[in-house]
Structures are given as structure tokens and as C-alpha cells.
Amino acid sequence: MRVFRLQVNGDPLDVAAPEHWSLLEVLRYRLGLTGSKQGCDKGDCGACTVLIDGTPTLACLALPATLEGKDITTIEGLRPLHQKAGGQGVDPVQDAFDRCGALQCGFCQPGMILSTKALLSDNPDPSRREIQDALAGNLCRCTGYTQIFQAVELVADEVAGREPRKPAWAQAREQEIAAASPKEEPFQPEHGGQA
């Protein structure tokens, strides 16, 4: 057992845990940050991806003893960070994943979203192949990745102020991509009268 001084989502935290526990176990079972998922036990799936100093890292293979003094961002940190930076609601990447249908079972998504955040902070307008390369360590079993790629492209399009690209089926139907646009306040508290 050792007390680790970790910086998680901006908070300095002293956390006691067995030394052979991975960062993933410390996050999930000591800090209650269960958004980082466990899929494969040993670095093969990417579900546990967190950002260490902004870099996508596998929490299941990282030992907390090597992470003191580093900045750890988990999926739980994105929305508060976005709001701290003056944004409304959730991070645009989280929002785009919903609008594009990229969240089915949702189990790979915390890792996928964090890999996407890192990609877009380096390269705000990636090509399809660059997106595939950046997400090649995050296995998804539900989507076939297509709607995930579209979500990343949606963020890039909106940041660039372009008309968002649409999949063929949406073009054929003249379908809006998530009519509930991010501005439609779905995740802001609403005010109203008495029940």
C-alpha cells in the first residue's frame, strides 16, 4: 500500500492503493471515476484510455507510481473543463458522438472520445485516414466505426465553419443530422413552474 499524489481532472488527490494496482483500478475502485472502462485486462482494447499530459495512454498498463506530478484527464473531466473554458453543456466531441449515433453500448466511448480530443487538439481538421490512425488503438464492436468517424468529422466541420458532411443515407432522406442541434439546450437545466 502506498499513498500516491495524483492530479486528476485538475484535482490534487492523495490516494492510498496497493502498488501493483494499475491506474485504471485506482481511478475506478479508489476514486470512483468509473467512466474509464476495462475491456481486455492488458492493453489490447483501448477502453481505459485516459490523457496523461494530454497524451492518450492506457490506464490498465500505467502504474500510479510513475504518474505523480502528471496531469491525468479522464472522461469525467471533459464536461467540467469545457464549462470552465466558458462552454455550455458538454464538450463538442461528446455532443457530436451522440448526434452522429456513435454511442451504441457506450463502453468504448470514453476512451474513443479522449483519443478524439487528443487528435483534434493536434490536428483540428484531420482526414478520414488520420482519424482512422488516431483511433486505431480503441476497439469498438458496435458501430463498425463509421458513425464515430462521422462524429469526428462533424466536430471538424463545425470548428471550420463548414456545412457538415452527411452520410449517403442522410443525403438520400434529406435528413438533418441530429435535429437537436447542440444549441438546442438539451443538457442545460430548464426552469419552470410548480409540478
Binding site: R28, L33, T34, G35, S36, K37, Q38, T74, I75, E76, L78, R79, V90, Q94, D95, F97, D98, R99, G101, L103, G106, F107, Q109, P110, I113, Q175, E176, I177, A178, A179, A180, P186, F187
Partner: peptide, 21 residues
């Protein structure tokens, strides 16, 4: 029509509770 999923935001933010959580 395009609609949001009822649980997508909980999943996207890590709020959703799976069994091991």
C-alpha cells in the same frame, strides 16, 4: 426524425453505470 438517444450523454460523460461500476 433525427433524435438524441436517451442515454447517450450519460455514456459520453462517464456518468452511465455499468455493472462493474
Amino acid at each position: 426524425h433525427a433524435q438524441r438517444k436517451v442515454d447517450a450523454m450519460a455514456k459520453a460523460t462517464g456518468e452511465a453505470v455499468y455493472t462493474d461500476d
